[in-house]
Design a protein around this nucleic acid. Structure first.
Lengths: 211, 211
DNA sequence: TAGATTGTTAATCGATTAACAATC
DNA sequence: TAGATTGTTAATCGATTAACAATC
């Protein structure tokens, strides 16, 4: 809260959250930084440093209470704020994402699904009708969603992003091939599946060369 | 090739590749590290350092030839090796991934699609029939795919991964919620959509607090 | 209390940036 | 040639790890 937390630390938070989630489901009550570090393949020092950016959640001689820490990290990530999202673009990816129930279990609400294709408008995904993209401005003004998930073709991406920013959207999860880089007050997370594929390709090549 | 290239450098390679791809399509012939750094929002120094891990691809006083550099990075990443993949798990995500034509344009070949569900086996995705998962061993032994894309539910993930490793698969792109961490000689790229969503959530929360 | 493990400071390590001589 | 820009070495900066006193 006081000083700027480094990007590296923030990037690790979701991973901590996942591990604590698993421990919680296991019924594990407490865990030490040492034990968690063994499971996660990181150093105990790093875990303690990371957590202490946000406060002292542990107790000397005991470790961390799993449930408490899980809850604290959820708070840090804003998972208890009930953030809502709209999704734009019901292609294969958009459909897959909208059909995924994982969001809701992470505290997010998908409140609207949009497309321009008349054949898709009105069809339902998980009980939710696909809306006409031309009505998205109205919708945003009424429901004030916190973020937009962009699963549109890359040719449409910039126009859609500009539209939505005009209507007041300030955070994007972008799946399209091209990167979305915007002004400082707009938050963006880019997901590039092909980048992951290329990294894997590199690893395969490297392995083949060293054997 | 000589010394181990750092993870940070490797992670940036796909991004360079994408930018060069765009420049190539633009018809741009040459680019300096300075100009590229401006576009990408990184330092020119970093670009030169990164590229020089693999060789001197530029020319003093001129910069880099876009086509050459694009090709060189493709080689570094192994994109010209025609790596082949099988996909296991035709859920929403698997279907979306298999339907995506982007792979082929990146030099990858999807050679087989598998599921255990009798209702899915035999259905076609982009002209390719979904095969019975019980035949995957046979298939691998015959066609020797270089990687497997796992879009199975997390409950099935570990079993499927062990099966495939048994049949000789040495690289995985894993989409399931749980992490796949394996022996050193197996390459893994984990894609966690919910992690990206949580990071975006953090950014939204942070922004709301500072305003 | 004694043992364990945190929170935190200090030391190390690696990655990024700056600078500049080499050279096209 | 003169100007530009690389490749590369050195300097800086930040992130990770180690160590240990504080304390439950």
């Amino acid at each position: 809260m006081d000083r700027k937390v480094s990007e590296s630390v923030i990037n690790r938070l979701p991973r901590y959250y996942r591990y604590l989630n698993d421990l919680l489901k296991n019924g594990t009550e407490r865990i030490s930084s040492k034990e968690l570090s063994d499971r996660m393949g990181v150093t105990a020092s790093q875990i303690r440093q990371d957590l202490n950016c946000f406060g002292g959640f542990g107790q000397q001689g005991y470790g961390y209470n799993v449930q408490t820490l899980h809850q604290e990290i959820a708070n840090i990530l804003g998972l208890n704020n009930g953030y809502s999202a709209i999704l734009v673009g019901v292609g294969n990816m958009g459909h897959a994402f909208a059909s995924n129930t994982k969001f809701e279990t992470r505290g997010f609400k998908l409140v609207g699904i949009f497309d321009i294709d008349a054949n898709k408008i009105g069809t339902e995904i998980r009980g939710q009708a696909v809306r006409d993209y031309s009505t998205v401005g109205e919708f945003i003004q009424q429901y004030r969603p916190n973020m937009a998930i962009l699963t549109v073709p890359k040719t449409a991406m910039h126009k859609v992003a500009q539209d939505l920013i005009g209507f007041g959207i300030k955070a994007f999860l972008n799946f399209s091939y091209t990167e979305l880089t915007l002004k400082d007050d707009i938050a963006v997370e880019n997901i590039h599946l092909s980048d992951s594929l290329m990294r894997l390709s590199y690893k395969i090549k490297e392995k083949n060369e060293n054997s």
